[in-house]
Every structure is written in structure tokens, then in C-alpha cells.
């Protein structure tokens, strides 16, 4: 038990000291059009058996820490979902490049 505890993964936020003194923003607004579209894609692709919620999470958890905190909620989802569809060959990486 003497070995030091490694730092949590970026997404593993329970108790994270960096947010200890951050008030919770009382924002009740529903997602914007961008968010709703990403949300819908996730559900459709899951229903078609092309991805699972567990894979969605794995993709979100792979986002580097600075990017994770810079991106909005559905921006993280989009990074994960589009990455998964490339990984599975559903779309090609070139199609997503600017």
C-alpha cells in the first residue's frame, strides 16, 4: 500500500481537486441544433449495430486532457463517433479531413 496512487484518467472526475471550488453552472438549456444532431446520429448508429455506448465512452476517454476540457459535450461525442466509424471502415478518414 506504500506505492503512490497514480493520477485518475481525464474523464474520471469524481472528487477532482481542480473543480473543488468551481460552482455548478445552473444551465438548464436543452442541447443546441449541433448537439441534437450528434445525439441523434449516436442513437441511429447504435440501433444499426454500428457502435455501442461503451465504444462511445472509450472514444471520449481517448481524447487528450487539454482537448477534453476545451471541447463541449457533444463535440467530444462527435470526435468519438466519427473516429469509431473510421476505425470500423464505415467512413474513410479522408472524407473527414478539411
Amino acid at each position: 500500500m506504500s506505492d503512490a496512487t497514480p493520477a485518475p484518467a481525464t474523464h474520471d472526475l469524481g472528487g477532482a481537486p481542480r473543480f473543488r471550488c468551481t460552482p455548478v453552472e445552473p444551465d438548464d438549456a436543452p442541447p443546441d441544433a449541433f448537439g441534437k444532431r450528434v445525439d441523434a446520429l449516436r442513437q441511429i448508429l447504435a440501433r444499426k449495430g454500428l457502435m455501442s455506448v461503451d465504444e462511445l465512452r472509450r472514444g471520449i476517454e481517448a481524447i487528450p486532457e487539454a482537448e477534453y476540457h476545451a471541447l463541449g459535450y457533444y463535440e467530444r461525442w462527435l470526435r468519438s463517433i466519427s473516429g469509431l466509424m473510421v476505425e470500423k471502415g464505415v467512413v474513410a478518414a479522408e472524407e473527414l479531413r478539411p
Binding site: G14, S52, D54, E55, R57
Partner: peptide, 29 residues
């Protein structure tokens, strides 16, 4: 991909109730 929060690792607890069996998310992911 782990669903056991970091802050609980190594801590004592008590089983409140069993919740059935479910496919392991560590593989599903």
C-alpha cells in the same frame, strides 16, 4: 475502459443489493 471510479479503488464498502449480471463493459468498449 473502466467503470470503477478511481476515487473508490481500495476502499471498504458493503453490498447494498445485487443488480443482476451484465456484459463486461471493459470488453464491450
Amino acid at each position: 475502459h473502466i467503470r470503477t471510479p478511481h476515487y473508490l479503488r481500495g476502499l471498504p464498502g458493503v453490498i447494498e443489493r445485487p443488480l443482476g449480471a451484465h456484459p463486461n463493459p471493459e470488453d464491450l468498449a
